[in-house]
């Protein structure tokens, strides 16, 4: 094409009506094989469920499935939040356990003092969000996410211990506990909350401006900045939303078990990160979504559940979880290298 017959048609952005003539149908989608390859985790999860149902007779019973779902839904909430942080290119939020514990303690303390269901729930969530805000502000200013969240973890852990002189908080028998232990028809409330959060975050990621920014910032922070996207606000948002979900998990955990202390939520960070990574969300940022994390959470749940049903030693569980991360991250790295050759 010669430069002088290269005419650029002026298309005002504000008025997108007239350009509708451009046919969108020409966009060729990815091939079915690619789609399947991209979604291999979904296939693996289905196979795992089928194998478990065939091999372990107690697995595919209503009672067991319900127990399985309840057992993963709290840490699963934290994993959904962690997904945002990972996609935004901030590696991980290691202060998640402290956020969960803080949420549970503040929630049950408010409950105990008779502030009622809504205030207790909101209070726990907001306390955790403050922690997320701290993480987000420092990391948006350029702090290393691992170091910042690790330091914040230590600080908030201390606060958690100080809050009730290291004693557990038991809350008050009432609405909050009834809510956490209730069922919506056959489905426990905890499970409903987990899946609702997943759907909400999936919607935020795929349909909102903030979601677009999370992917753009995660894929390349510098190019997002040059494109005029609000990089700092996006990073802060990702950490605050992640913390809100961790706080929610905390309040519910405290209410469900009728006890809150600084140990609630221990190990949630590694569990959440495992679920995110197994789901196939890239640790390099810019790729992945909440649906993948749900599959990661369920797959982890199935593995743990089968180990329990088979009466394997409990000590084996963390070993298997850890090995899974090593396998997925290692396999991903090897696949990457193979592609770049």
């Amino acid at each position: 094409m010669r430069p002088h017959d290269f005419a650029v048609v002026e298309v005002p952005v504000m008025n997108l009506g007239p350009v509708a003539v451009v046919e969108v149908g020409e966009i060729s989608g990815p091939s079915p094989w690619r789609v399947l390859k991209d979604r291999q985790i979904f296939v693996i999860a289905v196979i795992a469920v089928v194998v478990a149902s065939l091999a372990v007779p107690q697995f595919a019973t209503v009672g067991n499935v319900e127990a399985l779902l309840v057992s993963v839904s709290l840490a699963g909430l934290a994993a959904i939040g962690m997904t945002l942080v990972v996609i935004s290119g901030s590696l991980a939020d290691l202060s998640v356990p402290a956020q969960v514990a803080l949420g549970s303690i503040v929630g049950l303390m408010l409950d105990e003092r008779g502030y009622g269901f809504a205030i207790a729930l909101l209070g726990g969530v907001c306390a955790a969000m403050l922690v997320g805000l701290t993480n987000g502000v420092v990391i948006a200013a350029g702090g290393n996410p691992i170091l910042v969240t690790l330091a914040v973890l230590t600080v908030v852990k201390g606060i958690n211990q100080g809050l009730n002189d290291s004693n557990a908080v038991y809350g008050y028998p009432g609405t909050l506990k009834d809510f956490a232990n209730a069922s919506l028809g056959p489905v426990p409330v905890l499970v409903v909350v987990f899946f609702s959060a997943a759907v909400a975050i999936q919607f935020v990621l795929r349909k909102t401006r903030f979601g677009f920014n999370v992917y753009a910032v995660g894929a390349n922070r510098s190019s997002a900045r040059v494109s005029g996207l609000p990089v700092r606000r996006t990073l802060i948002g990702a950490f605050v939303i992640s913390a809100a979900l961790a706080g929610l998990a905390g309040v519910l955990a405290g209410a469900y078990g009728s006890q809150a202390d600084f140990n609630v939520g221990a190990g949630y960070e590694i569990y959440a990160l495992t679920a995110v990574v197994i789901g196939g969300t890239s640790l390099f940022g810019g790729k992945g979504d909440a649906a993948r994390t749900v599959v990661g959470v369920l797959l982890l749940g199935v593995i743990t559940n089968v180990m329990i049903l088979l009466n394997l030693p409990t000590a084996l569980q963390p070993v298997v979880t850890g090995l899974l991360i090593v396998a997925v991250v290692g396999g991903d790295a090897i696949a990457r290298r193979g592609r770049s050759r």
């Binding site: 952005v13 992917y215 753009a216 894929a219 390349n220 190019s223 040059v226």
Partner: peptide, 22 residues
């Protein structure tokens, strides 16, 4: 480094400065 996010699609890169208007 700064022009494009290489892992994102061409389309997402192209609309990035205009997400506000969109």
């Amino acid at each position: 480094l700064e022009g494009l996010a290489m892992d994102l699609s061409v389309g997402d890169n192209a609309v990035a400065p205009s997400v506000g208007e969109l």
